[in-house]
Protein backbone atom coordinates (compact mmCIF):
# COMPACT_ATOMS: atom_id res chain seq x y z
CA UNK A 1 0.00 0.00 0.00
CA UNK A 2 1.81 3.07 -1.21
CA UNK A 3 0.87 6.65 -1.66
CA UNK A 4 -1.42 7.05 -4.63
CA UNK A 5 -2.00 10.80 -4.55
CA UNK A 6 0.37 13.35 -3.12
CA UNK A 7 -0.80 16.93 -2.83
CA UNK A 8 2.21 19.10 -2.15
CA UNK A 9 1.86 22.73 -1.02
CA UNK A 10 -0.94 23.44 -3.45
CA UNK A 11 -1.92 27.12 -3.60
CA UNK A 12 -4.74 28.47 -5.68
CA UNK A 13 -5.09 32.20 -6.04
CA UNK A 14 -8.06 33.85 -7.77
CA UNK A 15 -7.01 37.47 -8.07
CA UNK A 16 -6.87 38.67 -4.49
CA UNK A 17 -8.67 35.62 -3.15
CA UNK A 18 -6.54 32.83 -1.80
CA UNK A 19 -8.80 29.79 -2.17
CA UNK A 20 -6.10 27.33 -1.17
CA UNK A 21 -2.87 28.04 0.68
CA UNK A 22 -0.05 25.49 0.86
CA UNK A 23 -2.34 22.51 1.28
CA UNK A 24 -0.58 19.17 1.83
CA UNK A 25 -1.96 15.71 2.14
CA UNK A 26 -1.29 12.21 0.95
CA UNK A 27 -3.76 9.50 0.09
CA UNK A 28 -2.83 5.87 0.54
CA UNK A 29 -3.82 3.30 -2.01
CA UNK A 30 -7.04 1.53 -1.06
CA UNK A 31 -8.29 3.94 1.57
CA UNK A 32 -11.30 6.18 1.80
CA UNK A 33 -10.01 9.66 2.43
CA UNK A 34 -12.36 12.38 3.60
CA UNK A 35 -11.88 16.04 2.75
CA UNK A 36 -14.09 18.14 4.99
CA UNK A 37 -14.53 21.72 6.01
CA UNK A 38 -17.15 24.44 6.23
CA UNK A 39 -18.67 25.98 3.11
CA UNK A 40 -16.14 27.96 1.13
CA UNK A 41 -13.22 26.18 2.71
CA UNK A 42 -11.75 25.29 -0.69
CA UNK A 43 -12.70 21.63 -0.92
CA UNK A 44 -14.14 21.77 -4.41
CA UNK A 45 -11.28 24.03 -5.51
CA UNK A 46 -8.97 21.27 -4.34
CA UNK A 47 -10.91 18.79 -6.49
CA UNK A 48 -10.63 21.07 -9.45
CA UNK A 49 -6.87 21.33 -8.95
CA UNK A 50 -6.55 17.56 -8.88
CA UNK A 51 -8.76 16.93 -11.91
CA UNK A 52 -7.20 19.54 -14.17
CA UNK A 53 -10.06 22.04 -14.22
CA UNK A 54 -7.74 24.54 -12.52
CA UNK A 55 -4.01 24.78 -12.78
CA UNK A 56 -2.78 25.52 -9.25
CA UNK A 57 -0.92 28.80 -8.76
CA UNK A 58 1.80 26.96 -6.87
CA UNK A 59 2.54 23.49 -5.61
CA UNK A 60 2.16 20.14 -7.27
CA UNK A 61 -0.10 17.13 -7.39
CA UNK A 62 1.50 13.76 -7.99
CA UNK A 63 -0.50 10.67 -8.87
CA UNK A 64 1.18 7.28 -8.79
CA UNK A 65 4.55 9.01 -9.05
CA UNK A 66 3.51 11.12 -12.07
CA UNK A 67 3.14 14.89 -11.79
CA UNK A 68 -0.33 15.76 -13.06
CA UNK A 69 -0.45 19.50 -12.49
CA UNK A 70 -1.05 21.34 -15.76
CA UNK A 71 -2.57 18.36 -17.52
CA UNK A 72 -5.94 18.59 -19.24
CA UNK A 73 -8.98 16.99 -17.60
CA UNK A 74 -9.21 14.26 -20.23
CA UNK A 75 -5.53 13.40 -19.80
CA UNK A 76 -6.05 13.09 -16.07
CA UNK A 77 -8.97 10.74 -16.65
CA UNK A 78 -6.70 8.63 -18.81
CA UNK A 79 -4.10 8.50 -16.05
CA UNK A 80 -6.76 7.12 -13.73
CA UNK A 81 -8.57 9.83 -11.77
CA UNK A 82 -12.25 10.50 -12.22
CA UNK A 83 -14.76 12.58 -10.33
CA UNK A 84 -18.37 13.37 -9.67
CA UNK A 85 -19.78 16.85 -9.19
CA UNK A 86 -21.31 18.66 -6.26
CA UNK A 87 -24.10 19.94 -8.49
CA UNK A 88 -25.05 16.89 -10.53
CA UNK A 89 -23.69 17.18 -14.05
CA UNK A 90 -25.02 14.23 -15.95
CA UNK A 91 -25.81 14.38 -19.65
CA UNK A 92 -29.50 14.99 -19.01
CA UNK A 93 -30.88 13.97 -22.41
CA UNK A 94 -28.85 10.83 -22.76
CA UNK A 95 -30.11 7.61 -21.27
CA UNK A 96 -28.58 6.21 -18.10
CA UNK A 97 -26.84 3.60 -20.20
CA UNK A 98 -25.45 6.18 -22.62
CA UNK A 99 -24.18 8.27 -19.72
CA UNK A 100 -22.16 5.36 -18.40
CA UNK A 101 -21.12 4.45 -21.96
CA UNK A 102 -19.49 7.87 -22.33
CA UNK A 103 -17.45 7.09 -19.23
CA UNK A 104 -16.55 3.64 -20.52
CA UNK A 105 -15.50 5.19 -23.84
CA UNK A 106 -12.59 6.84 -22.06
CA UNK A 107 -10.82 3.48 -22.22
CA UNK A 108 -11.74 2.87 -25.84
CA UNK A 109 -9.47 3.57 -28.75
CA UNK A 110 -11.79 3.85 -31.76
CA UNK A 111 -11.06 6.98 -33.73
CA UNK A 112 -13.06 8.69 -36.39
CA UNK A 113 -12.03 6.44 -39.29
CA UNK A 114 -12.65 3.32 -37.25
CA UNK A 115 -16.14 4.59 -36.51
CA UNK A 116 -16.92 5.51 -40.12
CA UNK A 117 -15.74 2.18 -41.52
CA UNK A 118 -17.04 0.10 -38.60
CA UNK A 119 -13.64 -1.42 -37.92
CA UNK A 120 -13.52 -4.72 -36.02
CA UNK A 121 -12.19 -2.81 -33.03
CA UNK A 122 -15.11 -0.41 -33.17
CA UNK A 123 -17.59 -3.28 -33.21
CA UNK A 124 -15.82 -5.07 -30.39
CA UNK A 125 -15.68 -1.91 -28.28
CA UNK A 126 -19.36 -1.15 -28.89
CA UNK A 127 -20.29 -4.64 -27.77
CA UNK A 128 -18.01 -4.77 -24.77
CA UNK A 129 -18.70 -1.17 -23.84
CA UNK A 130 -22.43 -1.74 -23.66
CA UNK A 131 -21.97 -4.86 -21.58
CA UNK A 132 -19.60 -3.03 -19.25
CA UNK A 133 -21.96 -0.08 -18.92
CA UNK A 134 -24.84 -2.43 -18.09
CA UNK A 135 -22.69 -4.13 -15.50
CA UNK A 136 -21.89 -0.81 -13.88
CA UNK A 137 -25.55 0.13 -13.80
CA UNK A 138 -26.21 -3.15 -12.06
CA UNK A 139 -23.32 -2.41 -9.69
CA UNK A 140 -24.96 0.80 -8.50
CA UNK A 141 -28.45 -0.70 -8.69
CA UNK A 142 -29.88 1.17 -11.66
CA UNK A 143 -30.39 -1.63 -14.17
CA UNK A 144 -34.07 -1.00 -14.57
CA UNK A 145 -33.46 2.64 -15.50
CA UNK A 146 -30.94 1.81 -18.24
CA UNK A 147 -33.08 3.28 -21.02
CA UNK A 148 -34.51 6.20 -19.09
CA UNK A 149 -33.15 9.67 -19.69
CA UNK A 150 -30.77 10.68 -16.95
CA UNK A 151 -32.81 13.74 -16.05
CA UNK A 152 -35.84 11.61 -15.25
CA UNK A 153 -34.11 9.66 -12.51
CA UNK A 154 -34.70 10.57 -8.90
CA UNK A 155 -32.12 12.70 -7.20
CA UNK A 156 -30.47 9.86 -5.33
CA UNK A 157 -30.39 7.73 -8.46
CA UNK A 158 -28.78 10.55 -10.41
CA UNK A 159 -26.03 10.65 -7.80
CA UNK A 160 -25.53 6.92 -8.22
CA UNK A 161 -25.52 7.26 -11.97
CA UNK A 162 -22.79 9.88 -11.72
CA UNK A 163 -20.73 7.42 -9.71
CA UNK A 164 -21.35 4.65 -12.26
CA UNK A 165 -20.34 6.99 -15.08
CA UNK A 166 -17.13 7.92 -13.26
CA UNK A 167 -16.38 4.26 -12.53
CA UNK A 168 -16.82 3.58 -16.23
CA UNK A 169 -13.60 5.45 -16.96
CA UNK A 170 -11.78 2.78 -14.94
CA UNK A 171 -10.26 5.08 -12.33
CA UNK A 172 -7.71 4.09 -9.71
CA UNK A 173 -8.79 7.09 -7.67
CA UNK A 174 -12.40 8.20 -7.50
CA UNK A 175 -13.24 11.70 -6.31
CA UNK A 176 -16.73 12.12 -4.92
CA UNK A 177 -17.90 15.68 -4.35
CA UNK A 178 -20.61 15.62 -1.68
CA UNK A 179 -22.25 12.43 -2.90
CA UNK A 180 -24.72 12.36 -0.02
CA UNK A 181 -25.92 15.93 -0.44
CA UNK A 182 -29.68 16.03 -0.70
CA UNK A 183 -30.15 12.34 -0.03
CA UNK A 184 -32.64 10.99 2.47
CA UNK A 185 -31.39 8.76 5.31
CA UNK A 186 -32.19 5.54 3.44
CA UNK A 187 -30.35 6.71 0.33
CA UNK A 188 -27.43 7.80 2.51
CA UNK A 189 -27.12 4.33 3.98
CA UNK A 190 -27.14 2.84 0.51
CA UNK A 191 -24.48 5.30 -0.57
CA UNK A 192 -22.26 4.37 2.36
CA UNK A 193 -22.46 0.72 1.36
CA UNK A 194 -21.75 1.62 -2.25
CA UNK A 195 -18.65 3.66 -1.40
CA UNK A 196 -17.33 0.79 0.74
CA UNK A 197 -18.04 -1.65 -2.06
CA UNK A 198 -16.10 0.56 -4.48
CA UNK A 199 -13.18 0.75 -2.10
CA UNK A 200 -13.21 -3.01 -1.60
CA UNK A 201 -13.08 -3.47 -5.38
CA UNK A 202 -9.68 -1.77 -5.29
CA UNK A 203 -10.52 1.86 -6.09
CA UNK A 204 -9.17 4.50 -3.76
CA UNK A 205 -11.80 7.08 -2.82
CA UNK A 206 -11.40 10.76 -2.04
CA UNK A 207 -14.60 12.07 -0.57
CA UNK A 208 -15.86 15.58 0.09
CA UNK A 209 -18.74 15.47 2.46
CA UNK A 210 -20.65 17.79 4.72
CA UNK A 211 -22.60 15.14 6.53
CA UNK A 212 -20.37 14.33 9.51
CA UNK A 213 -22.07 11.03 10.13
CA UNK A 214 -21.35 9.88 6.60
CA UNK A 215 -17.80 11.14 6.44
CA UNK A 216 -16.72 10.03 9.90
CA UNK A 217 -18.25 6.60 9.49
CA UNK A 218 -16.70 6.02 6.10
CA UNK A 219 -13.29 7.64 6.06
CA UNK A 220 -10.10 5.94 7.07
CA UNK A 221 -8.45 9.31 7.35
CA UNK A 222 -9.57 12.88 6.85
CA UNK A 223 -8.12 16.30 6.16
CA UNK A 224 -9.98 19.39 7.33
CA UNK A 225 -9.82 22.60 5.32
CA UNK A 226 -10.87 26.01 6.55
CA UNK A 227 -10.39 29.23 4.58
CA UNK A 228 -8.10 27.37 2.22
CA UNK A 229 -5.78 26.13 4.95
CA UNK A 230 -5.42 22.59 6.13
CA UNK A 231 -6.21 22.82 9.84
CA UNK A 232 -6.28 19.15 10.75
CA UNK A 233 -5.23 15.84 9.25
CA UNK A 234 -5.49 12.30 10.57
CA UNK A 235 -7.90 9.66 11.82
CA UNK A 236 -11.53 10.79 12.03
CA UNK A 237 -11.85 10.30 15.77
CA UNK A 238 -8.71 12.38 16.46
CA UNK A 239 -9.75 15.12 14.09
CA UNK A 240 -13.19 15.34 15.60
CA UNK A 241 -11.68 16.28 18.94
CA UNK A 242 -9.32 18.86 17.50
CA UNK A 243 -10.26 22.27 18.97
CA UNK A 244 -9.46 24.02 15.70
CA UNK A 245 -11.93 21.80 13.85
CA UNK A 246 -14.64 22.38 16.44
CA UNK A 247 -14.06 26.09 16.19
CA UNK A 248 -14.19 26.05 12.40
CA UNK A 249 -17.48 24.23 12.42
CA UNK A 250 -19.19 25.74 15.44
CA UNK A 251 -17.32 28.86 16.42
CA UNK A 252 -17.44 30.63 13.08
CA UNK A 253 -21.08 29.81 12.56
CA UNK A 254 -20.32 29.16 8.92
CA UNK A 255 -20.68 25.42 9.26
CA UNK A 256 -22.67 23.09 7.13
CA UNK A 257 -24.82 20.18 8.20
CA UNK A 258 -22.65 19.24 11.13
CA UNK A 259 -22.97 22.62 12.72
CA UNK A 260 -26.64 22.98 12.09
CA UNK A 261 -27.36 19.48 13.28
CA UNK A 262 -25.47 19.98 16.50
CA UNK A 263 -27.10 23.28 17.14
CA UNK A 264 -30.44 21.70 16.51
CA UNK A 265 -29.68 19.04 19.06
CA UNK A 266 -28.58 21.65 21.53
CA UNK A 267 -31.77 23.54 20.94
CA UNK A 268 -33.80 20.42 21.59
Amino acid sequence: MGTILKVDKVTMQFGGLRALGDVDFEIQEGEIFGLIGPNGAGKTTMFNCVTGVYNPTAGSVTFDGVAITGKRPDQIVEIGICRTFQQIRLFPNMTALENVFVGVDARHKTQILGAIFRSPRHRREEREGEAKAMKLLEYVGLTRFANDLAKNLSYGDQRRLEIARALGTGPKLLLLDEPAAGMNPVEKNGLRDLVRKIRDSGVTVLLIEHDMKVVMGLSDRVAVLDHGERIAYGKPEEVQKDPKVIEAYLGSGAGGNAASKQSKQEGA
Binding site: V53, R72, D74, F85, R89, F91, M94, D105, A106
Partner: peptide
Protein backbone atom coordinates in the same frame (compact mmCIF):
# COMPACT_ATOMS: atom_id res chain seq x y z
CA UNK B 1 -25.15 18.37 -23.17
CA UNK B 2 -22.48 19.47 -20.71
CA UNK B 3 -19.01 20.42 -21.78
CA UNK B 4 -17.49 20.49 -18.28
CA UNK B 5 -18.84 17.06 -17.39
CA UNK B 6 -17.72 15.68 -20.75
CA UNK B 7 -14.17 16.88 -20.15
CA UNK B 8 -14.24 15.33 -16.68
CA UNK B 9 -15.22 12.00 -18.25
CA UNK B 10 -12.22 12.01 -20.53
Amino acid sequence: EDEVAAAAMG
